[in-house]
Design a protein around this nucleic acid. Structure first.
Lengths: 147, 147
DNA sequence: TTTGCTGCAAATAGTTTGCAGAGAC
DNA sequence: GTCTCTGCAAACTATTTGCAGCAAA
């Protein structure tokens, strides 16, 4: 929980520093991104806010996610099927494991990744700025159900 | 070159086995995918075939790529910005290094990847079917130009 | 001759943009 | 009071689909 309020406070501070206005909609979106439970999609965030802001439009969700992304405070997880989900709790690149059945996403701990970036830079001569590593498969729950 | 004709022959054989018709358009698209020079996009394939098939539509390119993908003979590289590019020469998952300036994509050799899949499976309990690993950065050429 | 394929145009889905009024500061 | 933000609707882009005629086998 402390982790969530930390992230929320950080993003709000960054918004203030950029002299952006703290509208209720913006703060509500920020709150959901700071937590990023289940790595929400735009649609999911929109739905979650329907009760609190019945007239809010999808455009507002898009605009604010883009804004917070431009501050470097949210990570966009664009998937092969074109769907986008977001992580504002860990806004730096990290691996994901995605269940192709129920769409659950989890964040595994992988030790060996840092070395790999260095290995790639050395082999290719590229300056590596970013990366993405996603595994796709079937989660324990869905495997059970499929039996 | 042998590698390319191998891939072309393989895909054509798979098409035959599936009792699909070998139209000139389909074969031309297959040829480009078998080579996959520079990991082409749909648009790029379409443009390359304008001379040979001036009336061919984008829909035909989409349909045939999808078809060949469903045979497992082409890998779709969906990128964060929503762009799609294809590799029919190495249709199995493998890492990519993408230049964010000139959009060049190269395939590095990375030894340590197999272990990682096993590590993830063990840690998460997922059955891992697929993965994607992409690095983003600036290639040697573009770095030079930027100085 | 049969059946699947192509070209065209329209439909679709996800995202972005212009504008006028509302609201944060 | 100023200037950004929001809601709405329209625009846009990439991709998919329906249909009638064409062509591979």
């Amino acid at each position: 929980m402390a982790e969530f309020t930390d992230r929320y406070d950080t993003i709000v501070r960054r918004l203030r520093e950029a002299e952006l206005k703290l509208t209720p909609q913006r703060l509500a979106i920020t709150k959901i991104l700071a937590k990023s439970e289940g790595h929400p999609s735009v649609e999911r965030i929109y739905q979650q806010l329907q009760d609190a802001f019945p007239t809010m439009s999808l455009a507002t969700v898009y605009r604010n996610i883009m804004l917070i992304k431009s501050l470097g405070e949210v990570l966009e997880l664009g998937f092969p099927d074109g769907s986008n989900r977001y992580d504002g709790n860990k806004p730096y690149p990290h691996p994901h494991v995605v269940c192709i059945r129920c769409k659950t996403i989890i964040d595994p701990d992988l030790a060996s990744l840092q070395d790999m970036t260095a290995e790639v830079a050395k082999e290719t001569g590229f300056e590596i700025l970013n990366h993405r590593l996603d595994f796709f498969g079937v989660c324990p729950n869905c495997r059970k159900r499929a039996d």
